[in-house]
Design a protein around this nucleic acid. Structure first.
Length: 581
RNA sequence: CGGGGUGUAGCGCAGACGGCCAGCGCGCCGCGUUUGGGACGCGGAGGUCGGCGGUUCAAGUCCGCCCACCCCGACCA
């Protein structure tokens, strides 16, 4: 490719909307351009990088028996209605009507389509297992896109689905993906950690996320510094302390003026926050209810609520699938007869409010809780004696420094970007859509599904985040948009130009992919652009290099420069590319 | 959706006390000089000042409404 013809230009100034390195550099180097919030055009340079990433994906998918297909971006609503996600998923699914008034959706994922295909194509256990995948555009109308390509609304994903006759088959395919995806990240030069995760809107049995650890990440992960335990904070467990063994004492009302927060209360009574009960009021919108349901979460005062755990606890207890969960307004709390800041689990109207208690509470005696009267609390409240809960479950948030649930070691919080995820879905979608096979006994059985995804653009952005310096991008050879950056510094006599043209033609003939800077620019401009664009190998052809005996070689990210004789230049370039990969 | 911010040429910005043809740097086009780490001179092109409405003799500048984008939060691959 001649740079004089390349469809993009480099920018000297950083566009003001970009804050993180990958976003700034991908813009400045001419890889991407923004069209709208979370919507980008991928210029030829970016398209080449993504093609190379996708090539790696295809190789690794083929290695575990994947068959590539392509499923639609636009779906009729009815398959989403069949699985219930039409109502479960909120506004992040873009919906519209076609000209005849049918509800349609823009695909945000493809479980429904896979299950639909499975019910049409799969009749017999003899046809299982199957592994199908595609690399396809998805749209999620995220409320807040950010950080350049890290979080966008339209994106392409490698999206893989396994179909099995039983859980053992699913386990095997899950494990195969687990490893294949690690190989993909490894080949792309991106270090990742896997963590246990919430299955979120996918639902299912088990899930892992592949996290690239970086301060610009938006997920919080917890890692045990001693053992292998690692989890997204949304699901992270921790070893809760054993409360002291105490005899339940009689309830006692105490005046506690001006203590609407746990900190104020603990200070006023001169007790530890661990001796108090915290009340959190939330409004849950459920998929099968029109009006929001109030939920009263009770935790020990020294712990914070994990809303994901709470939502999962509600679902597990059969209360319904939570679409959204938000803090209740003071007016809503008062409307249920509770006093904000002094609310009590004792005497709460459980016909109107669901009480969910953290699983530490049944063994935490004599906590101070609100008296449901401004300025008063109750000492010695005991779950089971003074009040009951609709649900008792782990709903506490694991925080930095909490004890590991496996080894009691310390959990450390880190930030990360989720670049991939894998889910054991089970039969949720296949059962809903009636995707069954006949077993050896002629009995219909639901097909067992798994789904596995990697965001291509997000992966590219993370690679850029990981591999750059102050001058620009430094692509790993495996995903670089071109294999070699040929820089011509024109002399007066045309000798350098002829040499560079000849080398360029040789490179093209050899099947390599050179980017040839044939522009009429000064050396500084060309070198700076080369650094920005970040191709691993730079070969400079100039009268100075020719006088030194050939062409000047330099690897991006290294300081060494060396001269290679004209005659051997082509083979050295091929060696360098080989070595880089 | 709550809080904060920004919209003036391709990019970065000034202009805000209403007042000539709306500016600067970079980039872009032409000519010349220059030629190994973002050159210099001369001459050019390029603007619905985010949009609509209002106030006024006069609006980039004042007022109202709307839109877009960015950041923090809620939410998510």
């Amino acid at each position: 490719m001649r740079m004089s013809k390349l469809f993009s230009t480099t920018l000297r100034d950083v566009p003001s909307e970009a804050e993180i390195a990958s976003h700034q550099l991908l813009l400045r180097a001419g890889y991407i351009r923004q069209l709208g919030a979370g919507i980008y055009s991928y210029l030829p340079l970016a398209q080449r990088v993504m093609s190379r990433i996708e090539h790696i994906m295809r190789e690794e998918m083929a290695a575990i028996g994947g068959q590539e297909l392509k499923m639609p971006v636009v779906h009729p609503a009815d398959i989403w209605q069949e699985t219930g996600r039409w109502t479960q998923v909120g506004d992040e699914m873009a919906r519209f009507k076609d000209r005849s008034g049918h509800d349609m959706v823009l695909a945000m994922t493809h479980e429904e389509v896979v299950a639909d295909l499975a019910r049409r194509e799969i009749q017999s256990y003899r046809q299982l297992p199957q592994l199908i995948y595609h690399i396809q555009t998805k749209f999620r109308d995220d409320p807040r896109p950010r950080a350049g390509l890290i979080r966008v609304r339209e994106f392409t994903m490698l999206d893989s689905y396994s179909l099995d006759r039983d859980l053992a088959g699913l386990d095997a395919q899950y494990q195969a993906h687990y490893e294949a995806y690690l190989r993909i990240f490894n080949r792309c030069g991106l270090p990742v950690k896997t963590v246990s995760s919430d299955s979120g809107m996918m639902g299912g049995l088990e899930a892992h996320e592949y996290m690239y650890l970086t301060p610009v990440g938006e997920d919080t992960l917890l890692f045990c510094i001693q053992c292998e335990y690692a989890a997204n904070r949304q699901v992270a467990a921790f070893a809760k302390p054993d409360p002291p063994d105490e005899v339940p004492l009689p309830l006692e009302k105490v005046a506690t003026p001006g203590t609407a927060t746990i900190a104020e209360l603990a200070a006023y009574l001169e007790i530890s926050p661990a001796k108090t009960a915290k009340a959190v009021f939330l409004m849950a919108e459920l998929d099968d209810e029109d009006s929001p349901q109030m939920v009263f979460a009770v935790l020990r005062g020294d712990m914070a609520l994990n809303e994901t755990k709470l939502a999962n606890a509600l679902a597990a207890a059969g209360k319904g699938i939570v679409r959204t969960l938000r803090p209740a307004l003071e007016a809503e709390i008062a409307a249920k007869g509770a006093t904000p800041g002094y609310a009590s689990p004792i005497g709460i109207d459980r016909a109107q409010v669901w009480v969910v208690a953290d699983d530490l509470l049944p063994r935490s005696p004599n906590l101070v809780a609100g008296a449901n009267e401004a300025g008063y609390h109750l000492r010695n409240t005991n779950l089971g004696r003074d009040y009951d809960a609709d649900i008792v479950a782990d709903i506490a948030l694991a925080e930095d420094g909490a004890p590991c649930p496996h080894c009691q070691g310390v959990l450390e919080a880190r930030r990360g970007v989720e670049v991939g995820n894998i889910f054991k879905l089970g039969t949720r979608y296949t059962a809903a859509l009636g995707a069954t096979y006949l077993d050896e006994d002629g009995q219909p059985q639901p097909i067992v599904m798994g789904s596995y995804g990697i965001g291509v653009g997000r992966l590219m952005a993370c690679i850029a985040e990981e591999h750059h310096d102050a001058q620009g991008l430094i692509w790993p050879a495996s995903v670089a948009p071109f294999s070699v950056h040929l820089v011509l510094l024109r002399g007066k006599d045309g000798v350098s130009e002829d040499a560079a043209e000849a080398l360029y033609q040789d490179l093209v003939k050899a099947g390599l992919e050179p980017l040839y800077d044939d522009r009429d620019e000064r050396a500084g401009v060309k070198f700076n652009d080369a650094d920005l664009i970040g191709i691993p190998l730079r070969v400079t052809v100039s009268s100075r290099s020719l006088q030194s005996g050939g062409y000047e070689f330099k690897r991006r990210g290294e300081e060494d420069r060396w001269i290679v004789p004209v005659e051997t230049a082509l083979s050295v370039i091929m060696d360098q590319i080989e070595q880089g990969n």
